[in-house]
Design a protein around this nucleic acid. Structure first.
Lengths: 134, 134
DNA sequence: CTGGATCCGAGACGATACTG
DNA sequence: CAGTATCGTCTCGGATCCAG
């Protein structure tokens, strides 16, 4: 099984995974874990997202049954997004990734810096097997 | 705190997260959890990836210190990719997402089907001008 | 306030050819 | 085998305007 496909191309889980493999989807799920949110609320919480991407992301997540969209026909109209049971499960996982990212951001950024530096100083392809640990 | 940003825009963890928020990165990490792999080996295992995207993904992951690239200057040349300690940690998380996807693929696909059907039969909201994937 | 529609540039991505 | 280089396509994503 070592050489068999990890996720066969025709595997339905791929299409699922590809919805999650999106930074805004990750952020949305993380944000909604706290509590239901309205559209512009999410926009503020997810700094940097454009209306279009947020809209797209929300629709995609709703389509897959991860979030629920509820419209309250009140005066200025009110739309609230919240996690479904399915979304709660997904949110745990995506939040775990977020936590991990925060936790290891420093070392990863350091590795990134080293790599870039090494790349600069290597006009010829780097091919030493031993990692020359600076 | 409910309204505060989940991942502030200037937060370094965003750049980390965005490397993981990529389907091929997820697949690569999942694949390498089993054992180290060579380039074309990965290509076969990750069905559907082009050499370009695989190459890009591997370099990005290497840059962030999640995978290690070792070159053995043997006869037909041999390059092996493996997880670093950091990559092992990340792999656990991404595999968890993969497992979850497989586990819930059925219900998600069902939700997707319902949603699309509903969308078809809903001339109410707005004129049926645009729906992705016509 | 919640979002859809549209235009547009930048980058993703695929296919092919070529190098070591 | 393990890539890089180049090119063309196409989708992503941002900005703006507009409607319910």
């Amino acid at each position: 099984m070592g050489t068999s496909p990890v996720f066969p191309a025709d595997c339905p889980s791929r299409t699922v995974l590809e919805v999650l493999a999106n930074k805004w989807a990750l952020y949305v799920l993380a944000a909604l874990r706290n509590r239901p949110c309205r559209f512009n609320e999410l926009r503020r919480i997810l700094q940097g997202v454009t209306q279009k991407m947020l809209s797209q992301t929300l629709r995609a997540l709703e389509r897959d049954g991860l979030i629920r969209r509820e419209v309250y026909p009140t005066a200025p109209l009110r739309v609230e997004y919240s996690l479904t049971d399915l979304g709660v499960g997904a949110g745990k996982l995506t939040s775990a990734i977020g936590d991990w990212s925060k936790q290891h951001a420093r070392e990863i950024l350091a590795a990134r810096g080293e790599y870039d530096q090494r790349a600069d100083a290597a006009p010829h392809p780097v091919q030493s097997v031993g990692r020359y640990q600076a």
